[in-house]
Design a protein around this nucleic acid. Structure first.
Lengths: 178, 178
DNA sequence: GTGCCCATGTAAGTGGTTACATGATTCA
DNA sequence: TGAATCATGTAACCACTTACATGGGCAC
């Protein structure tokens, strides 16, 4: 659903060919977002049609390599997407993607969305803790129960860690706001 | 790719109708796994054809409700799937699903896969820390750099927390092994 | 000149999402 | 009797995956 926007953001960071994008999506850039070269070529074609990106025709005749850059319309589309697309509790990677957009093109005013996610995460953590109290308070647990408890603890730890991490975000997002 | 197995595991825990499954997948049972009722009905139909599950015909005439239970073949399929399907670094939810399978039907010998995931997570954590040293060692960072650093820290925290959590797994998985 | 990497695509299959559809039961 | 919930499905679309395909450039 947001593959084209992930590509746009990657292109904003650095104009690239489809091939380069595929490699960047393989390594450091997108540990939290992946796309195969087939997806990338398809989306690039669509985005050219939509007027979001264009090919830089520097060495057109020399090689077949097509380097894409983001047009103003595409840039505006990224900003619109970041501001308007709602985030669910589990959309952490989507938030990271938006943060990357925010890092490349000015402050986008994401603080509100982050606050909402934090509230949702707190609520879910409370739910998990209630289940913990209810189902795993007993002193002796069977093997199966211990495993189920481990699964629940994975959820609890995930929420806790994410909340700690998210705590520093608002100050980063608000300063320098337009 | 593993939706049918998620359904099988839920059915092993408690025989249910498609409707009940949809509700269970909405709430506590599958905070880490979701399926819509359309998927569930489709997969139930396929699994009946495959001989993995069967309808309990208790109140067939009384209501339209169809309660499904897992047949021995389906149970064996879950075990096979849990043992054989490879896990990538990011397949944490898939691991949780396998742990649930292990909690319902005896020990499946998942320790090896967990060890592999732990090794992979350590490796990725090292990669992240190397990036941290290389790109964010400077004392003063721009707003954009601070955001990119926050994104990286999300990855670092995630790996660290997961590794801590996974540390208690091997002892849970090995004891009582057949 | 053979093999490897660069570079871009097409085609088929599958799974998930969204919308549509129907009818029974239950409660106010 | 009307609305909400129970309960099960069909159909269309779209995205992603996997496999196939092609050809240029470069190094040994």
């Amino acid at each position: 659903m947001s593959t084209p926007h992930a590509i746009l953001i990657a292109l904003l960071e650095k104009p690239s060919s489809g091939y380069d994008l595929a490699r960047r999506f393989d390594r450091a850039i997108a540990y939290f977002w992946q796309a195969t070269h087939q997806q990338i070529y398809r989306e690039l074609g669509r985005m050219v049609d939509a007027g979001w990106v264009a090919v830089i025709e520097e060495d057109a005749a020399a090689t077949r390599k097509k380097v894409y850059r983001v047009l103003p319309v595409g840039r505006e589309e990224v900003a619109r997407w970041a501001r308007e697309t709602p985030l669910g509790v589990d959309d952490r990677n989507l938030l990271l993607l938006k943060l990357r957009a925010d890092a490349v093109i000015g402050p986008l005013g994401l603080a509100g969305q982050v606050q909402q996610m934090i509230a949702d995460a707190r609520e879910r953590l409370d739910t998990y803790r209630a289940i913990e109290q209810r189902d795993f308070g007993a002193s002796s647990l069977t093997r199966g129960q211990q495993l189920q408890y481990a699964i629940l603890k994975a959820g609890i730890r995930t929420q806790e860690t994410w909340l700690e991490w998210a705590d520093e975000l608002p100050s980063l997002l608000e300063e320098g706001e337009q």
